[in-house]
Simulated assay, not measured.
Amino acid sequence: MPMATLYMKLGNGSIPATKPGKRYCLYQDELDKWLETNRKNPVPLTAEEENAAILAGNKRKPNPLNW
Rank of each mutant, 00 (worst) to 15 (best):
M1Q: 14
P2A: 11
P2C: 07
M3T: 08
A4R: 15
A4E: 13
T5F: 08
Y7S: 07
K9G: 00
L10V: 05
N12R: 15
N12A: 14
S14E: 06
P16A: 02
P16K: 04
P16H: 04
P16M: 01
A17S: 09
T18C: 01
K19G: 03
P20V: 00
K22A: 11
K22G: 11
K22T: 09
K22I: 09
Y24D: 11
L26W: 05
L26S: 04
L26E: 04
D29Q: 02
D29I: 00
D29A: 03
E30F: 06
E30G: 07
E30M: 06
E30W: 07
K33R: 15
W34G: 08
W34R: 15
L35G: 02
E36L: 08
T37S: 09
N38K: 07
N38W: 06
R39I: 01
K40T: 11
K40P: 12
N41G: 03
N41I: 05
P42L: 00
V43T: 09
V43P: 07
V43M: 08
V43N: 06
L45R: 09
L45Q: 06
T46P: 02
T46F: 03
A47Y: 05
E48M: 00
E48G: 01
E48H: 01
E49G: 01
E50P: 02
N51Y: 13
A52P: 10
A52L: 10
A52K: 12
A53C: 07
I54P: 00
I54S: 03
I54N: 03
G57D: 09
N58Q: 13
K59M: 07
K61T: 05
K61M: 05
K61N: 04
P62K: 11
P64C: 08
P64Q: 05
N66F: 14
